[in-house]
Design a protein around this nucleic acid. Structure first.
Lengths: 124, 124
DNA sequence: ATTAGACATCGACGATTATCGATATCTTGA
DNA sequence: TCAAGATATCGATAATCGTCGATGTCTAAT
């Protein structure tokens, strides 16, 4: 550890003797792979336009939201909206259902709640 | 709305008559600037190594965590760790306190909880 | 079959990001 | 004053990302 105090000349504790660099107990800590998966879901939320899409979908939760609802309020072109929707679907946050010509999107029940709980539950 | 049924020949509702592109009520929806701020905080959580840093800091909540604790378990070099810590501090998630030569980090109380609540509270 | 329209995919471009070596800053003990 | 060490900052590089025009695909109605 940090027990370098076998020195006979100085036994008093300096500020620098305050234990630093405590070995982190590896058990309690988020491992690389789980961190990767969690980060991927937060990454889906790390873009303002995607958050606004979620906001619109959540506000319309009674009726589903279709792609055509989105380009105008967001000020984005259709391919860009489609791109963001794909990211949210891949992250398991949105559900896509194609009916006829249109694609309707809705929140995956519990997805945001589950992500939310990872922030308040004691890490791992 | 979509009442184009004044046509005498066909009065039945096609699939395509299902109302699509409902005008989004602009009041209920996350505005650009708030979306930007929220996204910035999620972006801080969108990297696996930053999540692992938070996990380590949270696990050590009794004693504070110093920078020197981190490079080894993460497999990162010190400048990289410093970079991630800065991002977490700037996002208001970590608190930095310099004592002597060392910099100690701790969770900002309530920061993760507040972010968490934005995910479960009805959007806006 | 053909057309029109909604949506997805592709390819490109500029902007941002994660990483790290090199270096600067700052604090402490000699 | 000096040297050592902990941390922050700088500069570069490769990779990823957001955006959009062009194009492809699929569906429904003619």
């Amino acid at each position: 550890m940090s027990a370098n105090a076998v020195n006979s000349t100085e036994l008093e504790a300096d500020i620098l003797d305050t234990p630093c660099c405590v070995a982190t107990q590896g058990d309690n800590v988020l491992q690389a792979e789980e961190a990767e998966q969690l980060a991927a879901r937060f990454k889906a939320l790390s873009d303002p336009n995607r958050l606004r899409i979620l906001s619109i979908v959540a506000a319309n939760d009674s009726e589903e939201t279709c792609v055509c609802d989105l380009p105008e309020p967001l000020g984005l072109k259709q391919p860009t909206v489609s791109h963001h929707l794909k990211i949210l679907v891949d992250a398991g946050i949105l559900h896509r259902e194609k009916r006829g010509v249109w694609a309707y999107f809705s929140l995956v029940p519990g997805a945001l709640e589950s992500l939310s709980s990872t922030l308040v539950t004691p890490k791992k």
